[in-house]
Amino acid sequence: MAKYLLLKHYRSASAPAPIACEPMDQWTPEEVSAHMQYMADFATRLEGTGEFVDGQALSPEGTFVRYDGEGRPPVTDGPFAETKDLIAGWMVIDVDSYERALELAGELSAAPGQGGKPIYEWLELRPFLSAPPTITE
């Protein structure tokens, strides 16, 4: 088994898909609900297959923070509302193979948008670094 992080990137300007997708606030309420329901159903289904670990949605606006020297408060930058690549959320899965992880990421990327059509959302698939195995030689 291996754990993977599915990062849901929302790339408004660089979507290669043939579907031109407007921001969510331009969808109908039913379309928004259908999109959310798809995510929830996906998570429930993965729990049923014994592959779900965790998942959360993130606020689109974040703040950059860094240390600024002894005795000084941290420096902050942002928020950047106009970013071209924001991370809308994430999910962690625990699956038997990389192929299975790809398959699931593809399914999650097909979440419905306007008109009930898949939004072709980009997902980034990142393997977790595991514990070291006992036997290596």
Binding site: K3, G50, F52, D94
Partner: peptide, 15 residues
């Protein structure tokens, strides 16, 4: 031990 939620492991075993 496998760092997954108990509900997920319960389902894995039931399946």
């Amino acid at each position: 031990a496998y760092l997954v939620p108990e509900a997920t492991m319960a389902q894995r075993i039931s399946r």
